[in-house]
């Protein structure tokens, strides 16, 4: 079992996301996370999918996705020469007297406090998945009221092998 991050560039047609996710579900492939958004050229959407499986499955995923009519390109974003980022919003119950500890953690991880009331703080944190995991673990003695994560968005490093925009 290994984890892979695929970057998929697709035509921005209606239903394209369901075509991709439908392919994964009907062939029994795993989706750990999926993010999508239009590129600088609004005709295209870039999708980042994190998946896992053995070598044969990962090979099939790449081929089956490439086969979809709307897919312009699929490539693996290898850890060593790619940038991955994820954003998380964490709503933590602090009460009025336990804010300091969370604010320290926010400071250490260069996160941001984006909302607060008397009961809670909402923190925005961006980074690799391991950074976000580490932050969550640091504040694990607090009660997390709500957590929203975007999943990974990624790009390859440098200007070589740029497929489109």
């Amino acid at each position: 079992m290994q984890k892979k991050v695929f970057q998929i560039l697709v035509d921005n047609t209606s239903g394209v996301l369901s075509r991709i996710s439908g392919l994964f579900s009907r062939r029994g492939y795993n989706i750990d996370s999926i993010t999508a958004g239009v590129t600088a050229d609004s005709r295209f959407t870039r999708i980042t999918i994190v998946t896992h499986g053995d070598d044969e499955i990962l090979d099939q995923i790449e081929k089956q996705v490439a086969k979809l009519v709307d897919v312009r390109d699929i490539k693996e974003l290898k850890r060593d020469d790619s940038i991955y980022r994820e954003l998380a919003l964490v709503k933590v119950r602090t009460g009025e007297d336990r804010r300091q500890g969370v604010m320290e953690a926010v400071d250490i991880y260069r996160a941001k406090i984006v909302d607060s009331d008397r009961e809670c703080l909402t923190v925005e944190i961006t980074g690799t998945q391991s950074k976000i995991e580490a932050f969550l673990s640091l504040i694990s003695n607090y009660e997390i009221l709500e957590l929203a994560r975007t999943g990974i968005a990624g790009l390859g490093r440098g200007s070589e092998n740029v497929v489109y925009l």
Binding site: E56, D59, Q60, K63, Q64, A66, K67
Partner: peptide, 8 residues
Amino acid sequence: VDPAEIGK
């Protein structure tokens, strides 16, 4: 003609 069939 279908690359996905090869090696499936």
